[in-house]
Nucleic acid binder design. Structure first.
Length: 863
RNA sequence: GCCGAGGUGGCGGAAUUGGUAGACGCGCUGGAUUCAGGAUCCAGUGGGGAUACCCCCGUGCGGGUUCGAGUCCCGCCCUCGGCACCA
């Protein structure tokens, strides 16, 4: 059998060589086209998991492939290093968040190196380095000056367990995205980024990403931004100078308004309640609504209202309609006030029925007349306007325009666009984050830190308290400072940034990680945008929207020159595995399940239930540890399996037998090359025209060139590594067959063998780089495979000389013919009709029609 | 409820433009090797009928277009993901 494949030896050897030669270090080179490949950087949680391995393997294949194609490839890696788990670890194990974080980074860096990823490690940084976040603080100050960052008091999502505010995007089904605790509403002052100022651009530029980003992500972002066009309409309040401004998308239903609903948080609600002497009731109502927010948002809670004993005046009819506070009206959307049209809005309909308010039909369907008495639901479709004064008779779509025009003319309304997107709350009451660089001065109020005083360093001499609260508000040395403006005594901001701020611009910093200034124009100009970004779908909204926003802000601040940061996006699927569950012992590790599928715990013997494959999680005991797999099979095998088992955008089911298969393939290839290496080391790859070769060698060359074409197309156009690998396996199978058949004495034997083996090694090298370097060396090649050009194919050589033509009778396959390529229809027909199988099926029938598809099939239609 | 993706052998998945459904891998069956197991190698492997040539059926279900449909159209079912009182 000869040499044994020893992955660990080979892999460490080549990793050292790549490192020593600085193969993946890059700098700007105006003579070469650049290519920037980026994978979403990890949170240093302790160890990498299979999801990381998959993500980074995909990126590595692309980076290595592009390099072989002659691109100057930037492929960096870093650490999203601020965040809550560091504080939790500090609480649990008494380690400082900084130590915990940097230790984790060291461990995980080693893991990534062991996988052989082609990173330019000289560019590595962690976002908790003050040399990184100092620039973020500068951006913040500049945003503050431009009104893009501001402070306000609002109802915020508060996680009682994490002691912090959460952005809307961080609330999932009413629970904290990190710890799952139910989120409560709380009024707080905090810092916000005015992302809504970019709502329209963020929406519009999604068009530029069409076809380059997954449609799914574009749809999710579009929905999140949630543009709706409508109008603002003013209602006077009877007996008071105040006005209520409502937002509606249905100005055509204005004549159907029978009451007005205010959010319980609406300032006017409080004033009206006070006037009516029911302030207590309102406050109780508001409290209840806040508490029930989750059920309200899930549509579970009953609609409730509180009559504020006041009336609004209809701007067109002058009619008086009651004003209610209603628990389903959101202060954060539109104006916090809604004109209620029960006949044509389901929510208002339910509310009206509950409180016995009138229902007035103003839109009829084309072919029917609605009766408010018998209606069971609101009619929300377009139709014909009725009971609408001068607008009666108009189609409702036209009526929208007509009414808004009229309102504008008389000055009580206007066209208006609303967005669901809200400003991004970035304040976190956390310790392990980037300090927000402002101070509170008794005299000057809120003052930004001077640029030359940056960074405002996070003090490392602090300990989290037992409740998990940030130590900053109690840390005098940090807290006490002087006002950058007047020099008087001042207090530092103790909130830190949401960690999504750091990940919103790290991709740009990789262009110039060591620069004194935030972003070096020429470098950023050369490398950006990211040509291919790769990461999990879970960031479809949060991270990707913020990064897009930051790109636009940094552009407007003069740091960047582009509108969109990520040219192409690939969202890879999860790595999943079936969990095992024992009815008595709960979730089991695979080694706790017997061969025959029974529970081995405490001699239990109960039949184990195999669940459907799902995301790996510790609690379900279905995690596979990358370290263990690397130890057993080597990095190349793990990488190969990750790429082969499914196309990248789909979920990948972990399979112990599957990885065995990948290992087997690499072993086979290793032995194959080893076996022939002596004989072909000095041989030049075949370069003739093929006419001197026996047919099986010609066929092998054909297959080789077809495979180069196929693999190149799969990597270039579709990023479908699974089919690329399948094609290479086919070539290896074909080669082995040929070696059995062909005689080494045949002319050109060694040359063709060399040509084929070279191609196999080159094609496979982006996916399993270590074994390929080793085999490259065995083939007697000089230099590194990583620095070799990607192979070319020749259409001439790849062309089939003989093809299979399928013969059908009435659309059913009856025979197959081998004919020279390009055989004309007449000849194919002649051959087909002489086939006994075909004759049998045509017996007693008349041919009505013949369909001929050149190179594919001939079909006789007969009856 | 709305939006999106998907449903193909025992399993993961191929089929890129409407043209041989099931590439490649796993598993399984038989054989070689072995004291035995493992590893490796060879052959077979969608279902059914005949076991020789062959024939019938088959890509979630029902219809349609077409010489020909996994692929296109219409109507359903199921699974997964996202959003959801946004006025």
């Amino acid at each position: 059998m000869g040499e044994v494949y020893k992955p660990e030896e080979i892999e460490i050897k080549w990793q050292r060589i790549w490192e020593e030669k600085g193969v993946f270090r890059v700098k700007e080179d105006p003579d070469k086209p650049k290519y920037y490949v980026l994978e979403m950087f990890p949170y240093p949680s302790g160890r990498i998991h299979m999801g990381h391995v998959r993500n980074y393997t995909i990126g590595d294949v692309i980076a290595r492939y592009k390099k072989m194609r002659g691109f100057n490839v930037l492929h960096p890696m870093g650490w999203d290093a601020f965040g809550l788990p560091a504080e939790n670890a500090a609480l649990k194990h008494g380690v400082h968040p900084a130590d915990w974080t940097y230790d984790n980074i060291d461990y995980m860096r080693r893991q990534l190196r062991r996988l052989g990823f082609s990173y330019d490690w000289s560019r590595e940084f962690a976002t908790c380095d003050h040399e990184y976040y100092r620039h973020e603080q500068r951006f913040f100050i500049e945003m503050l000056e431009r009104g893009l960052a501001y402070r306000k008091k609002t109802l915020v999502n508060w996680c009682p367990s994490c002691h912090t505010v959460l952005a809307n995007e961080q609330v999932e089904d009413g629970a904290c995205w990190r710890c799952g605790t139910e989120v409560v509403q709380r009024e707080m002052e905090g810092w916000f980024f005015r992302i809504t100022a970019y709502a329209e651009e963020l929406l519009r530029d999604l068009e530029k990403l069409q076809g380059k980003w997954p449609e799914k992500v574009l749809v999710m972002q579009r929905n999140w931004i949630g543009k709706s066009e409508g109008a603002e309409i003013e209602f006077e309040v009877d007996g008071l100078p105040e006005k209520i401004t409502v937002f509606t998308t249905r100005p055509d239903t204005l004549y159907g308004v029978t009451f007005v609903s205010l959010s319980p948080e609406h300032p006017l609600a409080e004033r009206l309640a006070e006037r009516a002497g029911i302030k207590e009731e309102l406050l109780a109502f508001r409290e209840k609504a806040r508490r029930a927010r989750r059920e309200i948002e899930e549509g579970l809670a009953e609609k409730e209202g509180l009559f504020l004993e006041a009336y609004a005046i209809h701007p067109l009819t002058g009619e008086k309609v009651p004003i209610y506070a209603a628990n389903f009206v959101l202060m954060e959307y539109g104006t916090g006030a809604v004109m209620a049209v029960p006949a044509h809005d389901q929510r208002d309909f339910e509310f009206a029925r509950k409180y016995g308010l009138p229902i007035k039909v103003v839109i009829n369907p084309e072919d029917a007349e609605l009766d408010p008495e018998t209606m069971e639901a609101a009619y929300e479709e377009p139709g014909v306007m009725v009971n609408s004064g001068p607008f009666t008779g108009l189609p409702s779509e036209e009526g929208k325009r007509a009414i808004v025009e009229h309102l504008e003319k008389i000055g009580v309304g206007r066209k208006k666009v609303s967005y669901r997107l809200r400003d991004w709350g970035v304040s976190r009451q956390r310790y392990w984050g980037c300090p927000i660089p402002v101070v509170y001065c008794e005299r000057c109020g809120v003052v930004p830190e001077k640029l030359e005083n940056l960074p405002v360093k996070l003090p490392l001499n602090a300990q989290i308290d037992e409740a998990g609260r940030s130590p900053l508000p109690k840390l005098e040395s940090f807290l006490k400072t002087e006002c950058p403006r007047c020099g008087g005594p001042a207090r530092r901001e103790t909130d830190t940034f949401d960690t999504f701020v750091e990940s919103s611009w790290y991709f740009a910093r990789f262009a110039c990680p060591d620069a004194k200034e935030p972003l070096v124009s020429e470098k950023v100009h050369y490398w950006l945008p990211v040509d291919q970004y790769i990461g999990g779908i879970e960031h479809a909204i949060l991270h990707l929207l913020y990064a897009r926003f930051f790109t636009k802000v940094l552009r407007d601040l003069g740091y960047l020159h582009l509108d969109e940061p990520f040219e192409k996006l690939l969202t890879q699927g999860m790595v999943i595995k079936e969990p095992y569950k024992c009815p008595r012992h709960g979730w089991l590790y695979p080694e706790e399940v017997s061969e025959s599928g029974t529970c081995l715990k405490e001699g239990c013997g109960e039949r184990v239930i195999v669940g459907r494959p799902e995301k790996m999680s510790k609690s379900k005991c279905n995690v596979v540890d990358p370290d263990e797999m690397i130890k057993r099979y080597g990095a190349d095998t793990v990488r190969l399996f990750m790429l082969f088992a499914a196309p990248p955008e789909r979920d990948l089911e972990w399979s112990d037998q599957g990885i065995e298969g990948a290992f087997r393939f690499l072993k086979r290839l290793y032995h194959l090359v080893s076996e022939w290496s002596e004989k072909i080391r000095e041989v030049e790859p075949y370069s003739g025209d093929g006419n001197d070769l026996p047919s099986e060698l010609k066929a092998l060359r054909r297959k080789t060139h077809q495979t180069i074409r196929k693999v190149t197309q799969d990597l270039e156009e579709r990023l479908h590594f699974n089919t690329a690998i399948a094609a290479i396996m086919e070539l290896v199978n074909h080669l082995e067959d040929t070696l059995k058949k062909a005689s080494p004495e045949a002319p050109g034997f060694y040359e063709v063998l060399k040509e084929t083996l070279r191609a196999i090694v080159l094609l496979l090298s982006p996916m399993t780089p270590h074994i390929c370097e080793e085999l490259w060396e065995k083939l007697g090649e000089k230099g590194l495979v990583a620095e070799t050009e990607w192979p070319e194919w020749s259409e001439e050589v790849a062309r089939e000389e003989e093809i299979t033509v399928v013969v059908q009778v009435n659309g059913k396959v009856r025979d197959q013919l081998r004919v020279p390529a390009g055989t004309p229809e007449e000849r194919v027909r002649e051959l087909a009709l002489s086939s006994s199988k075909v004759k049998r099926h045509l017996e007693g029938k008349t041919i009505r029609k013949v369909v001929f598809v050149p190179g594919r099939l001939i079909n006789f239609v007969a009856n």
